[in-house]
Every structure is written in C-alpha cells, then in structure tokens.
Amino acid sequence: MTGAEKTGKSPRFYPAEDAKPSKPTYRVRQNPPKIRKSITPGTVLIILAGRFRGKRVVFLKALESGLLLVSGPYKINGVPLRRINQAYVIATSTKIDVSGADVSKIDDAYFGRANDAPKAEGEDEFFEGDAPKPAVVSDQRKADQKAVDDVLLKTIGATEMLEGYLAAHFSLSSSDKPHLMQF
C-alpha cells in the first residue's frame, strides 16, 4: 500500500500513461580490440602522429587494452618503450626477430602514473601556476629499456643497413603518392 492509499487522500502526482518503465542498467563488456594482420611482433612500424611522428619503431607486443607496445630502440632513434594506438601507425614489410626480448612484465599498468605527489594548496597553488614539472624517468624504466634495447640492437646489428633505416625519418613530398607505395 502506498501512503495515499493508507490515508485515503489522492496522490499529488499521477504518472503519465505513455511513460516507459526504466530498463535495468548493467555494464556492457567490451571485446578486446583486434590487431591488424600486418602487425606482428618484430614488424617495423612508422608512427604517423604525436611527438615521435615520422619515426620507425619495432613492434614488441599487443597490450590488453588494444594498444601496441613499441620501442625505437632508444639508442638508435630516441623512441622509448611506448604504447601507441594502431590507428596511428603504418606497418612496413620489414620484420626483425624479437623473440629474445622479455616484455612479459610490461602491461598497461606499467605506464600508469603515480599520484604520490602532495598537492599545493591555497596561495602556493596559485603562485605555482602552470609551471611544467620536470619529467623524471624511474630507474626501473631505464633498466627495462636497456634490457629490451640490448636484444634489439644485437638483431638489428646483424642485418645490413637496418640501423640506418630505423634512424631515418619518414616523410612525404608533394610528388609522392602514398596510396601507390608499398611499405
């Protein structure tokens, strides 16, 4: 019984006749994104956007989020271990052996940021402004980068002219027709 039925008074609100009952809400589970067939571990990719656009990198593995784990290697072209969306890369036909690189411990959580830094409050926050914070790379990241790069550099050094290919910057001129090119 509702409150109006108990007291004998008529309710103050009458529901509209055309009101649809609310549907139960539940979470939709998304399927993991599919990686293009042309992108396999060891494939050399060309980055199309972002800070490292035009750089050639080596694909190491697909992460659970659907992003690609790539590395320059850092010593050759300055690209560290990074996650990149596959929409922003071109897969080339060049492949190298990356079976010796242990990237099993690197996942999406590896790239998360820690919120350990205390926030400034009041006047300190105001006068701090938008000053950029110096980016400090952890010793763990440096060690992981070195371990992956050592394996990649051995493989790259064994192949003739591959180091120069990875170091070269990719660009197109006005006369280039990218739809006719084979990468």
Score class of each variant (00 low, 15 high):
residue 60 L to M: 08
residue 100 G to F: 05
residue 15 P to Y: 07
residue 173 S to K: 15
residue 22 S to P: 11
residue 26 Y to E: 15
residue 134 P to K: 10
residue 27 R to N: 09
residue 94 T to C: 06
residue 63 L to G: 02
residue 101 A to N: 06
residue 83 R to A: 12
residue 155 T to E: 15
residue 131 A to T: 09
residue 33 P to T: 00
residue 74 Y to H: 10
residue 154 K to A: 14
residue 165 Y to D: 09
residue 67 L to G: 07
residue 156 I to A: 01
residue 3 G to M: 09
residue 119 K to Y: 08
residue 162 L to R: 14
residue 28 V to P: 01
residue 106 I to M: 04
residue 163 E to N: 08
residue 17 E to N: 02
residue 173 S to P: 11
residue 137 V to T: 13
residue 155 T to L: 06
residue 28 V to G: 00
residue 76 I to K: 09
residue 176 D to F: 10
residue 150 D to H: 01
residue 125 E to A: 08
residue 12 R to M: 09
residue 9 K to H: 14
residue 39 I to M: 04
residue 121 E to T: 08
residue 27 R to G: 07
residue 48 L to P: 09
residue 54 G to W: 11
residue 105 K to I: 06
residue 94 T to V: 07
residue 77 N to V: 01
residue 107 D to P: 09
residue 124 D to T: 09
residue 96 I to G: 03
residue 59 F to A: 04
residue 175 S to N: 14
residue 117 A to V: 05
residue 38 S to R: 10
residue 89 V to D: 10
residue 44 V to L: 09
residue 88 Y to T: 15
residue 53 R to Q: 15
residue 114 A to G: 08
residue 57 V to S: 03
residue 142 K to L: 14
residue 105 K to C: 04
residue 38 S to I: 00
residue 138 S to H: 07
residue 102 D to Q: 05
residue 128 E to N: 13
residue 159 T to L: 04
residue 137 V to F: 10
residue 1 M to F: 10
residue 71 S to F: 00
residue 167 A to P: 13
residue 7 T to K: 11
residue 57 V to H: 05
residue 1 M to N: 11
residue 157 G to H: 14
residue 172 L to S: 02
residue 27 R to K: 12
residue 18 D to A: 02
residue 56 R to M: 06
residue 65 S to R: 06
residue 73 P to I: 04
residue 173 S to C: 10
residue 138 S to E: 12
residue 54 G to I: 01
residue 9 K to L: 13
residue 59 F to N: 07
residue 150 D to P: 00
residue 176 D to Y: 12
